[in-house]
Write a protein that binds this DNA or RNA. Structure first.
Lengths: 354, 354
DNA sequence: TTGTATGCGTTATCAG
DNA sequence: CTGATAACGCATACAA
């Protein structure tokens, strides 16, 4: 190793040491197609690079090429749950393998051009952001800087490839299940936290459709609780707002008891459902005897609770690799931008609570 | 808004449109100290910039200044848990507020110079990485490129500011608690997964010290179970490897029953502890009557289990802001690199399981 | 107060 | 096949 330098070595330093020009160095180091460099020269260059401890300067490269290898993930305002965390970690890994670097952009409050300007400074190869933050002006801005835009949301965004988290489908699976078990009076919990409301509503709508679909598909012949027959009437569903705290779960259960207990509950996610389960048990309500309960996300937590929690999850194991692959084909322009990217398919895991 | 251009506008475009030089544009846009630009000129420039939809080019700037506004977080190989996820999301936000951008670097397998070269390409302002990945050569490389290095680990890394996650301290709090409740035969669970082993061992060592410390501090007078007196002997502690699956939790419990049940268990974290609790209940073992159980991380899950799970957590609420602040003072050179950054203090939350 | 000129590290376009 | 050399967009020392 040569003497410690005050500044990192550049290809100019390598060129000098190897006795060639900077162009040759660039060719060798990048394996530039359409150039045939003799093995001898090639070795001299790589050895000089190793010797000097050369590290390419990403900014210089992207200034020249006009594009960086950065992929911006604009973090949603939602608290990063276990599901999203796993996806993100996986995505970072997969992108790295493909020569890209994931950037976590944190100003979840801003949207539109204001947000887009922040992203555009990096001249990233792609930006992944919630659909509702991508106003027309924002899309224009990103398009002008040549950045691939990917929307994030519960449903495909018109004109953009979308990472679809199928909230409606999750609710539907849960609703169908509850109806199939004979539930006639279902409560869908919706988080009180504003940033989660939309997701909660999407899941609730799904539950409604699942309930209706199950009744229609049944044609009056499904199994039912207490010997009542499913008569084809639409099943009642109420929406119940709830904060993610033990205290509020207690309040919800007390009000249910006062106003009439539902016979089926969709808990929005496993944490809400777990808190409800806790409160129901404390109140002496039998689960699933009196109230059937279904959560969502299928966290490990479900297997630890007593009774175990039935949950509808989205299998995230392979999602990051798929997402990275699709992102790349979008970046390299091999693929149109229209097709939505439905990464996850809802999958019900039935356990003891329902 | 002017016509759509094929390439994003530059300060040269602004200068032309405003009828000034690029230097003036730069002065105005950056509020460069030591320059007095009349309000009239200033307005012409900002208006032109707005009109053209100007977005500064981060790479060009960092090439010129030699420094980028990127902070690299080299992701540990460990699965991103809820705790780390919250910290990361918070850090991204805080850094953004201060003009920096968080980069999630995903090649958790590589270390040493190999990893350092990947980081160095971005010429980041700072790199946060696990201490064991920072070999001397790697540190040298980063230092030469003028990057602030911050270690991540269970204990302060010599010569580097360290984000300390006090695993030993967590174990100690748990051990002290168990000893105080009269436990004499404690099992510390250590995750079987290789990347978690070190953390598990650190927490186990802490448990050992906690047990010993409690006995010594007690001087034979502490409360104890079944009327036995704490006689000052060191309390026995065994290490129990376990995978994070219901099946393996079952195996562990069966072996405990066969070889003699411990009277106290530290479950490594809440998920391991929850699985163990589940298995213990299934096996008909009374908790905490026969076995006292303590988890770690203090997840919401703890309040949902029955019995509720005692847990030792690290309060992470304010950590991101503190970390960002310290990082900044390190970057700007206002502060020496020696002082460790102990962000989290272990804190026991006693619930019904122990 | 403002303009001119230069260089940051790379890649790409040309000649040779 | 390889070597000069001109951009890329920006910041700044220096000149006017």
């Amino acid at each position: 190793m040569s003497a410690t330098r005050s500044r990192p070595p550049t290809i100019t330093d390598i060129a000098r040491q190897a006795g060639v020009s900077t162009a040759t160095v660039s060719y060798v180091l990048n394996d530039t197609p359409g150039t045939r460099i003799p093995e001898a020269t090639r070795r001299r260059v790589t050895e000089a690079a190793d010797d000097l401890g050369y590290v390419p300067h990403a900014s210089a490269r992207s200034l020249r090429t006009g594009r960086s290898d950065l992929v911006v993930y604009a973090m949603p305002a939602v608290t990063l749950g276990p599901f999203a965390a796993r996806f993100l970690a996986g995505l970072a890994d997969e992108l790295q393998d493909r020569g890209f670097t994931l950037v976590l952009h944190g100003d979840s409050a801003s949207r539109g051009v204001r947000a887009a300007r922040r992203w555009a400074r990096l001249r990233p190869a792609a930006v992944i952001a919630e659909g509702h933050r991508l106003t027309d002006a924002a899309r224009d801005l990103m398009r002008r800087s040549g950045t691939v835009l990917v929307a994030l949301g519960g449903a495909p965004e018109a004109g953009l490839p979308t990472l679809v988290l199928d909230h409606r489908g999750m609710g539907e699976a849960a609703g169908r299940h509850l109806a199939g078990r004979g539930c006639r009076d279902v409560a869908a919990v919706i988080p009180a936290e504003p940033v989660l409301r939309d997701m909660g509503e999407a899941r609730a709508v799904g539950v409604e459709e699942g309930l209706r679909g199950a009744v229609e598909g049944d044609a009056g012949g499904g199994q039912s609780r207490d010997g009542e027959s499913a008569d084809g009437d639409a099943i009642a569903m109420r929406r119940t707002p709830m904060e993610e705290t033990p205290e509020d779960a207690g309040r919800v259960v007390r009000e249910w008891i006062r106003d009439g207990l539902p016979d089926g509950v969709f808990g929005y996610n496993d944490e809400h459902a777990g808190l409800l389960l806790s409160a129901l048990i404390d109140a002496g309500v039998e689960v699933p005897g009196r109230v059937r309960l279904v959560g969502a996300d299928d966290l490990p937590l479900c297997g630890m609770l007593r009774p175990r929690l039935t949950s509808v999850g989205l299998r995230a194991e392979y999602a990051p690799a798929e997402a990275a692959e699709r992102l790349l084909s979008l970046i390299t322009g091999e693929e149109g931008a229209d097709r939505p990217l439905r990464l996850w398919t809802p999958e019900l895991r039935v356990r003891a609570s329902s």
